[in-house]
Simulated scan of single mutants.
Amino acid sequence: MLAQADLAMYRVKDSGRGGWHLLSGDDQSQRLMRTRVLWKQRVEHALVNDCFLLYAQPILGVHDRTVSHYEILLRMQGDDGEIILPGQFIEVAEKSGLIHSIDRMVMSKAIHYQFFAEKQGLRVIFTINLSAHAFNNPDLLSYLKQLLQETGLAPQRIIFEMTETAAISDLVAARRFMEAINEIGCRFALDDFGTGFASFQYLKELPFDLIKIDGSFIRKLSSRTDDQILVKAMAEIAHAFGKKTVAEYVEDQETLALLDKYKIDYAQGYHIGRPVPVTSILEENLPH
């Protein structure tokens, strides 16, 4: 009975609180809750048994056509070896509080991979994604400082990335967090730029170095005049504020040529390169 009451309570919370929910025998919330419990257990198992993998996707300098840096992407390895995308487990990790452990784990793995690469003579720059809950993790900044001290990595070679939606959910906390990251010496990128109602306002409000133009503006860039106008305007305004621009979801040469024309700084997408295990990136580029 208590378990059923718990299910009803979560249904009310998901619908915005301040209401009620009548739990019936055929209610889908029971199946949903069982699924959440299963994924929570899988995330806990993956954290304990090192089943999380880091993938890397190249980001190309549009002007010189050379790889500038790599975005680090998270994957989970299942029991039978299948690769699980974060869309299946991140929401559960956020709701259960396990996201803080995931943020720490991703940061640690990425920085240690970078340290290994530099020891072997390969200088790489990684972009590390942080969750929307990073603002509320009091230990994250001190943990970053500890990792940098242990490895001796130059903080300028690390870029942290957070979505615009996450940043604007608490603008004051976002600004404070980004300023602290900048003080350490690392850089910051704002992902999914353009999806917010007042995106250009954040160019003044938040101290980041790069904006990643949301893929919804890029996917059909070659055929949609309105997207071309918007992307060109984003590039011009971002550069006026001293920010670099990255276009996501670049999937053909025609789009890349337009980005060059609009003076977009960097391009990312399947046309540039698909995500691959970060270990293969290191093996491929290490001097022999």
Rank of each mutant, 00 (worst) to 15 (best):
I168C: 01
V106Q: 02
R34W: 02
A5K: 15
S142M: 07
V172Q: 06
H271Q: 07
A134D: 01
L60A: 10
G215I: 07
E164K: 02
S169K: 09
G25Q: 09
G81I: 05
E164Y: 04
E248W: 00
A132N: 00
C186I: 03
A8K: 01
D214C: 10
V12C: 09
A267E: 05
E254K: 14
Q146P: 06
L122C: 03
F197R: 03
L153R: 02
A166E: 02
L140C: 15
V12K: 05
L141A: 02
Q30N: 14
L256Y: 05
A117K: 01
D50H: 07
C51H: 13
S280W: 09
Y249N: 09
K243H: 03
I125P: 00
E284M: 15
M9I: 05
D14P: 13
V278Q: 04
P207D: 14
L140F: 11
E251I: 03
R31V: 11
A257M: 13
A46D: 11
P58L: 14
S222H: 14
L85T: 14
T66G: 07
H21M: 05
Q120K: 09
L210P: 12
L23G: 12
G269A: 12
Q4P: 06
H69D: 15
A198E: 05
L53V: 10
N285I: 07
E284Y: 04
L171M: 11
P287E: 12
Q120T: 15
A46F: 13
A166T: 04
V106L: 13
R34Q: 12
I218C: 14
G185Y: 11
L53Q: 15
V231R: 01
C51D: 14
L258H: 02
Q57C: 05
V246K: 01
I181N: 01
I229F: 08
L144G: 12
P287S: 08
S101E: 14
F160W: 02
G97T: 12
A110I: 14
A134T: 01
S222T: 08
I281C: 04
V276H: 04
L258W: 00
D227N: 13
V250G: 03
A189L: 11
I111Y: 02
Y113D: 08
N285H: 12
I99V: 11
T225K: 09
